[in-house]
Amino acid sequence: MADQTGAGPAVAEETTAAAAARRWGPMRVVAALAIIAVLLVFPYLLPSGFWVDMAVQVLIWGALASAWNLSAGYAGGLSLGHAAFLGVGAYTSTLLFLELDISPWLGMFAGAGVAGLLGLVLGAITLRLRGPFFVLATLAFGFVVHILAVNLRDLTRGAAGLVIPFDGGWENMLFASLEAYWYVGLGLVAVVVGITLWLERSRFGYYLTAIRENEDAARSVGVKVVRWKIVAAALSAALTAVAGTVYAQFVQYIDPDSTTEFELSVQIALIAIVGGMGTAFGPLLGAVVIIPLGEVLRAELGGGPSLMVYGALLVTIVLAAPRGALPWLQQLVRAARRRREVSA
């Protein structure tokens, strides 16, 4: 239904954006600097630790959704099994830390490597699948990883989970102050969104966009569809795992349910969708809206009713604005600007 805003306006968007950049160049730099400054002091502007906690969660979920978006939003790989990569990242770095005393900063890369490899393999074997078949394959993969996390008890301690003993210090990515996690989360988001932006502007990104818009057409003009889809899947998995490590260090306790459950995969995708799939900042916007909203609804309405509202909202949003909030807001802004330009 809302799909008539296809490729055409997207091109128009590019040119208006480019024109705006030329016109607003210096102001943009100032605005960017101001935003960075606010982000750096942001946790100290919040009334209490509770809000800082929520802000850190927004960043972690924003990073997870952005990582999901790399594959789903840009290469059409709508995954419902991404919690598996979150779990792989969390468990890899945590086990390395607990068993071999390897810093999570290094464990993070190990986790990313393992998840990237898994993403590569999964991407390779599912690349022929389209539509719901791909969704179901990723869903099954997520369940397999969850069942393994529960049952490989010698490795993961099963449902008992792993407690990360608090031994504060930056080398262990364990901090007494919440604010420190804000900066870790900020760095994480900067990396994921940065990669997304680079991707959007690179040839890789154009290939992916071409694949998402029309896979057959892309193939026919010589885009190596398969290769790029797999690369996107692996990159997405690896970055999700990195966020998993940060999550583990933040909560300092992981268990199969809180790192690999199906509901988490849904939540990751949902945030990206609400914010805007296939846009660099959409998933982040989604996290800014969804995470506090979830908390508030739960506090105000209690469990069942709040999730009812959550479900109803989800249905409404995907029906009414399937491209998500960001493209829709951009459209509003563009329309307003056009109106102003016309009247001027």
């Binding site: 809000w51 506090p292 909203l293 508030v296 909202l313 409404t316 009414a320």
Partner: peptide, 27 residues
């Protein structure tokens, strides 16, 4: 159809935001 549903989303988002702000103030 399209317009009304988008309006609905906007209203919902605004409502959510209002609840959020209200909650912050209470806290």
């Amino acid at each position: 159809m399209n317009k009304t549903s988008r309006l609905l989303v906007l209203v919902l988002l605004l409502a959510a935001f209002a609840v959020l702000v209200a909650a912050c103030e209470v806290d």
